[in-house]
Design a protein around this nucleic acid. Structure first.
Lengths: 337, 337
DNA sequence: CTGAAAGCGCTTACAG
DNA sequence: CTGAAAGCGCTTACAG
């Protein structure tokens, strides 16, 4: 237990001890030109000795940028926001720029209020993290830059960073094809989510390119394990000679694995299974560890933060940027030797 | 798309339009005494008309509190921090107090740096969210109040809010006993986690109180599904006449359910299963929806924030506060009629 | 009941 | 190269 510090040393304290004016001390500490080398070194040394750290509140008041950004999410319950948050933190450098995290709870009014509050707090920028990869209404022009992550803004002049879901479908297909599988079914999620639609498109395109036909029609339902269990049964009756299944989420894939297991069907020797998300706790702990397309959400967070910083520095990059994904292969597609 | 606003109106602007001095305007807006009623109303009206909102940065500089708190977590990957964060946000009121969220990534050095950064930012208080319910080193006395949530501080003079894990074990046992089960096994997690130890204690105590003997020795391993699957088999050979099993986490319980399912054992008619965490995506989607002891982490977050606000208001409550849990019954213990 | 003045801690033209 | 002065936007004794 250290003792309670009095008042933390101010610039004025440093200046007094160093025997210079506050203005000079400020310049010395901020690497401004026109400070004698010796003076600068002395000030810096004394600042360190005194344990001086500039008061960001005061600095913000006089200087402009506050060194804070706001992150508004709607998915704190879910698992998508977290990896993105970590990426944002990485890119921002938690020591330099701090993030205000606010959860809109899926309420548009609440979101508007939060954005307003962040603006009042004079954040330097805002990242809006969506919860579905579907377009969402733009916030319009604000007094600070805004970047939309995961869900794109419906205004093409805004900066949006999302997952390229056709790429997801394509990679899943190519992975299975590369293993020699040709009787591939597809179990998807909600039919009206763009994630479902785009993943199917990419999947279909890759099959087409390989002149392989999909085994049975794509099955749409929801994103749950229960649906995965049910749909797997249906897929098997549509195409009894299946040798692989592409599930549009890890939860669905977990259900599919259980359904196959119950029928005594070997994974991956008889049927290979691949999911989407790389949600570790689900994928690694499946009875057969699950191969999956990793959305690389942490990277998405990093890119979003990088674009935000660029915009704050006066270099906005309007438009939609879609990030690629990556297959993470485990035993559900690649048997242990 | 609204247009970019010029400079937001300042107090001085409001004062000028209202024909009063900035001091008077400030008092009027802040409900200070000694302002003529009419004056006050005029200032308030004009402030509203101008869309004035006080600059929190300036206010913080002159007044003291910044209206911000820091939350340092180590579990952004995991699922425990999130519900707590939501509780914190609820209690703080996201419109009044904003939270800086920082993830220490399980690195003590990084944690120390983050706390330092938060202090420099002049947060009004700090909440340290742990990732295991084991004691963690105290940060010592800081210049602002600190509350430890989930993991308690090793200094009893700090304010810590945690889950009462003996209560967890007790409730699980009482729930199963109330259903008439008497041959109850226990599959736990890591043997050296206090969560494991305390949950066993509570469980044992409740069995003792009912003069029921535990079915076989408690099984320790880790918190994973894989362990749950393996341990369930072992529990069955230790006590073939089992009629219930208390798993120390939902993940373990999921594994146990799978193992029982594979053996054709009916849940809950033959064996009832209860887990801990109420991690919805796991519990609700199990092939038999999982009964579980809910840790009420959101509430824990709310309580932690409430204690922090009390401390910031000069009413600290040192010591450890352990919060009770609650059984959330689903079909794995209560059969559908 | 109102306002002039000082101050929170820093930065930045501007003079010297 | 250095420092006095003004200012960022607000609050709070203190005088009137």
């Amino acid at each position: 237990m250290s003792t309670v510090s009095e008042r933390p040393p101010s610039l004025a304290d440093v200046a007094r001890v160093a025997g210079v004016s506050p203005s000079t001390a400020s310049k010395a500490l901020n690497d401004r030109t026109d400070v004698k080398r010796a003076t600068k070194e002395r000030v810096v040394r004394i600042a360190r000795e005194l344990g001086y750290s500039p008061n960001p509140v005061a600095r913000a008041l006089s200087q402009g940028p506050t060194g804070t950004v706001g992150v508004v999410t709607s998915d704190l319950e879910g698992r998508f926001a977290l990896p993105m948050l970590m990426g944002v933190e990485d890119a921002l450098g938690a020591d330099r720029v701090l993030t205000f995290l606010c959860d809109a709870r899926g309420d548009d009014m609440r979101e508007a209020r939060l954005v307003q509050t962040l603006l009042e707090r004079r954040v330097d920028g805002i990242i809006i993290v969506g919860r579905q990869p579907d377009p969402r209404p733009s916030l319009g022009r604000l007094s600070v830059p805004v970047v939309y992550a995961y869900s794109e803004s419906d205004d093409p002049l805004d900066t949006s960073i999302t997952v390229d879901n056709t790429d997801v479908g394509r990679r899943a297909a190519e992975h299975l094809l590369s293993l020699g599988r040709t009787r591939i079914a597809h179990i998807s999620g909600e039919p009206d989510h763009s994630a479902s639609v785009r993943r199917l498109e990419g999947f279909q395109a890759a099959l087409d390119a390989a002149s392989v036909e999909m085994a049975g029609p794509p099955l749409f339902g929801n994103w749950s394990e229960g649906w995965g269990r049910a749909a797997m049964g249906r897929a098997l009756s549509e195409a009894p000679d299946l040798d692989a299944v592409f599930c549009a989420s890890d939860q669905i894939a977990r259900g599919a694995i259980d359904a196959l297991h119950d029928r005594g069907i070997g994974i991956p020797d008889q049927i290979a299974v691949i999911g989407v998300d790389n949600w570790q706790v689900l994928a690694e702990n499946a009875r057969v560890p699950l191969s999956t397309v990793d959305l690389q959400l942490k990277r998405l967070g990093r890119v979003a933060a990088a674009r935000l910083m660029a915009a704050m520095a006066g270099r906005p990059a309007p438009g939609l940027e879609q990030l690629g994904s990556r297959v993470c292969a485990r035993q559900s597609t690649i048997p242990l030797r």
